[in-house]
Design a protein around this nucleic acid. Structure first.
Lengths: 235, 235
DNA sequence: CTAGTATCGCTACGTGAATATCGATACGAA
DNA sequence: TTCGTATCGATATTCACGTAGCGATACTAG
């Protein structure tokens, strides 16, 4: 019995590692990348997990495990080669190939993203913006044209755009997502605070500022609340 | 000194569990809130977990469990009262009391957040912006003054500001965080792609766009990659 | 040349979150 | 009134991530 369970756990783990990488590890990789780029610019060519750990507030084991997912191997006592590590992370994350993206919703947040030229370092290029507001259509924001929303699906198909960014208000997000899917877009980066309904093969990543804000304000509010009994709050 | 860092790591990791509500649940609460507000505006007064689940793409059990954390109780067969539920979520998240915040880094993203008036619905009020760039100091962005960074700590103390938002480039983030802590700020909302080192009692919430982008581009790249040989990819 | 030590890689364990299952309760229909 | 059903609440199982410990390896000092 326990052999069975052990085996199945093992299989699950194997499958997990082969098919993917834990989400938290994936989230940490860009931080390693940023840190390593800094080291590299200082001319440091080798680095150990312990060093990364102390500088980034992580325990060395975790760093090592994360880096293993990229496929790189280090040498005992020596550590890792910084340039190789950077290269490994970039290639693992697909930052070598440029992703062209469409953005919908040329409001404050959309404008900010359009102007964020550093995205190009990470394989992201926003090629055009879309909006439903006639006032905005025809404008140029940070060198990108604002086009009418109706043209999105057709253009996406002809230009083989794979990534869509939604920075429109929540009530329009679902309709926009539908249009994007219709245009053959494969992945959505959604900044609206809704859970989009899309076909199963579409990748959706939600970037919900209100969720984060909820976390924060809850933790903050909690601090000034009367001291809570850990479990005894009830009955 | 390293005791401090250990503590902060520990605190960050355990914050969710010690608090009594899982982080993911906390993140979903604003979505329920948004959804319920919509129902409420339609005049619907009662709702069941199953309904919420189908509309939000979640399984009913999960919805029920999340809602339980707010302390509300439902009635079998009837479900929950929509207004009570909204009230419970708002009070649980601390959205009834206003959090005043300082923002540092009046770039694209900072400007976007300053202009996002809907934050006021969620208990957040950004009262002033700060920057180190003399060009920006003295300007008014969306009705908020841009002040010199040196004044932050003193002002924060005098105005009892508890929340700091960092939208500056990564290389300045740590210094800014230090200033905020010096000014008595309790919680940081950090949009820079770095792990801040702060005393253990400070709440930090990282909003790392590059992490998200990494997730996305990895998943997207993976789709077009040839089936992966686990170890053979390199050399 | 040998011993010591820092670091990597692997396996095993523990904890917390998601999910499934079971019993309890309230409303509606016969 | 009584039975059926939808829904809530509580408990148990499964799964994923983080953590710890062990052995292996390579550099360095004497």
């Amino acid at each position: 019995m326990n052999i069975d369970t052990k085996l199945s756990i093992h299989a699950a783990l194997e499958a997990g590692s082969r098919a993917g990488i834990p989400q938290p590890s994936l989230n940490r990789l860009p931080q390693y990348h940023h840190y390593l780029a800094e080291l590299n610019s200082k001319g440091i060519s080798r680095v150990s997990c312990s060093l990364i750990g102390t500088d980034l507030n992580l325990v060395p084991v975790q760093v090592r495990k994360d880096l293993q997912y990229t496929g790189i191997v280090g040498k005992p006592k020596t550590g890792y080669s910084v340039p190789e590590l950077i290269q490994a992370i970039e290639s693992f994350l697909g930052w070598n190939n440029v992703n062209e993206a469409f953005l919908v919703g040329a409001g404050n947040l959309g404008t900010a993203l359009l102007g964020h030229e550093r995205f190009s370092n990470f394989g992201l290029s926003i090629v055009a913006a879309f909006d439903a507001d006639p006032e905005k259509i025809g404008q140029w924001i940070h060198g990108k044209a604002v086009l009418p929303l109706e043209k999105l699906a057709d253009l996406a198909q002809r230009m083989s755009i794979h990534l869509g960014i939604i920075t429109a208000p929540a009530e329009f997000a679902q309709a926009i997502a539908d249009e994007m899917v219709r245009g053959g877009i494969q992945a959505l980066w959604n900044f609206a605070p809704v859970r989009l309904k899309v076909p199963a093969h579409i990748i959706v990543h939600n970037e919900d500022l209100y969720s984060s804000l909820a976390s924060l304000s809850w933790k903050l509010a909690r601090r000034y609340r009367v001291p809570i009994q850990q479990d005894g709050g009830f009955h």
